[in-house]
């Protein structure tokens, strides 16, 4: 464990807590894409298959449970909670996210480190996480006034993977065998997808204005 990875995990933890806080306290999911939340639930389900068979550390297991629990409960809130679901604008959240799942699965079957079920599912979760934010970014472009919590959520979600890239650089130089091209490339693609969001987020913070993405 290094400082970059710990900072990345904490940033990721904060992003889901910010979202849960928003949905649980003000009982609203306005501006949040259910499709992105469903994709993330799928990412964690596919990545943490070995949560009970491959014990690494208490920290690792606890964090996996938090990510699984939070992502599935956010999907539950947005789908079934009688108050929260009313604030979900489904006619704006129209990204066809099923078109993301199949290509990621096919790519994972083609390009992976080892052709086993667990390894393919793990690789699938990496590819899917790289594109999971797309429905949310599209929704943000359509949402007139993005509320602060939603903007912070997306910012933290992008920042965590950027910190992971620093973690991979650090591990590459400190651990001889640590080479994971698949993880690195998909992590880089994922972070690059946030590039324009980061730009507008920084601009709104610098000029102290409301965050607004151009259509």
């Amino acid at each position: 464990m290094n400082i970059f990875r710990l900072a990345g995990d904490m940033t990721h933890l904060f992003s889901v807590l910010v979202l849960l806080l928003k949905i649980h306290t003000i009982k609203s999911c306005a501006g949040v894409s259910l499709k992105t939340q469903e994709l993330y639930a799928l990412v964690f389900a596919a990545r943490y298959l070995d949560i009970f068979t491959n014990y690494i550390s208490l920290y690792n297991t606890v964090m996996k449970l938090i990510f699984l629990g939070s992502s599935f409960s956010i999907v539950w809130y947005m789908r079934y909670h009688k108050i929260v679901r009313r604030s979900y604008d489904k006619d704006q959240d129209t990204f066809r996210h099923y078109f993301l799942i199949l290509p990621c699965l096919l790519l994972a079957l083609l390009i992976n480190e080892k052709f086993t079920f667990k390894e393919v599912m793990w690789t699938f979760s990496l590819y899917l996480e790289a594109v999971a934010i797309l429905p949310q970014l599209v929704l943000l472009q359509r949402t007139r006034n993005i509320d602060n919590l939603t903007g912070q959520y997306v910012f933290l979600l992008g920042a965590y993977r950027a910190l992971y890239i620093l973690n991979w650089v650090y591990r590459y130089f400190t651990e001889p065998h640590f080479v994971h091209w698949i993880t690195w490339v998909s992590g880089l693609v994922q972070t690059l997808l946030y590039a324009d969001f980061f730009y507008y987020y920084f601009q709104s913070w610098k000029n102290n204005q409301k965050l607004h993405l151009p259509a």
């Binding site: 995990d9 964090m63 640590f178 993880t183």
Partner: peptide
Amino acid sequence: IKNQVDKDEL
């Protein structure tokens, strides 16, 4: 073991 250790990230 190598592979298991490498899967120590979230």
